[in-house]
Simulated scan of single mutants.
Amino acid sequence: DLDSDSDSESAADGGVRQASWEVEQSASGAVQRALPAELAAGLRKAREQRQRDEVLESHAELSSLYWKYPEQRQLLTSDLRESARVIFLSAERQFSDPHIVAWGETLESIGREYELPWQYLARLNGVEPRELQAGQSLKVVRGPFGAVVDLSAFTLTVHMHGWYVQEYRIGIGQDGRTPTGRFTVREKLENPTWYNPDGGVVEADDPENPLGEYWLGLGDHIGIHGTTDPKSIGRAASRGCLHLGDADIREVFELLGTGSEVVIRR
């Protein structure tokens, strides 16, 4: 459920409210030809809210519909991406009180306070760690980010408390090798070294390294990483890991922190 009635609470946590992404799939899997009445009403409500500049309320409504009607997501993603950009990916507009940098603080320490990766704060506010100054104003939201992977759709959706942030196309493990369940990001590595299970090592920055530039480890040799083969996106081609294109894995690396939950489902 989403609750956006309290302005004071909204200011305290960046306006983000819990939304449920855990929706049961249709047993038949049949595609509904007619637009469900609830979905149509929700779309009208969200667009009316957006016309009144109620960005948070509109995004909350659309996020709820996104999880409830996965077969109709093409109707939602354009509006969702625009409002997610304003809320989560741009510092142009604030929806809560900014964080005023205190003496001695770092992007990493501020990130811990809000359960956000420092890389996300750096990108959001256009500031490098070494350039941070006391008294500086930073846009923040109350994390953490999480992700839901739908293997059958070849998608990874980053969310914050159920609110849509971004959807990415992915490649998955061949022959059902990608495990399902709830996982946690255990490690984050830039320029990872690849240790081939069949033997051999491919060093970091080697153009033949199949992990690409970023690695998010989920445990048991399963992770989220880049790829040297863009054609493998949207296919079941890996040994079990999830992989994304270069630009997408960089964004996901900045959004997900150590401890972020990743749910993988069929």
Rank of each mutant, 00 (worst) to 15 (best):
A34G: 14
A34K: 13
L35Q: 12
L35N: 10
P36L: 01
A37D: 10
E38T: 15
L39C: 07
L39P: 00
L39Y: 07
A41K: 14
A41T: 10
L43H: 07
L43M: 10
R44K: 13
K45E: 15
K45W: 07
A46I: 02
R47E: 13
R47W: 04
E48M: 03
Q49I: 01
Q49T: 00
Q51R: 13
Q51H: 09
Q51I: 01
R52M: 14
D53F: 15
D53R: 14
E54S: 11
E54L: 12
E54T: 00
V55Q: 00
V55H: 06
L56S: 05
S58V: 00
H59T: 10
H59D: 10
A60W: 03
A60E: 06
E61P: 00
S63A: 06
S63C: 05
S64I: 03
Y66K: 08
Y66T: 02
W67P: 13
W67E: 12
W67V: 02
K68N: 13
K68G: 11
K68Q: 15
Y69K: 12
Y69F: 15
Y69N: 14
E71W: 12
Q72P: 13
Q72W: 15
L75R: 09
L75F: 07
L75G: 07
L75Q: 12
L76K: 03
T77N: 11
S78K: 14
S78R: 11
D79M: 02
L80Q: 03
R81P: 04
R81V: 04
E82F: 08
E82M: 05
S83Y: 02
S83P: 12
A84Q: 02
A84F: 00
A84E: 05
R85C: 10
R85D: 15
R85T: 12
V86A: 02
V86R: 09
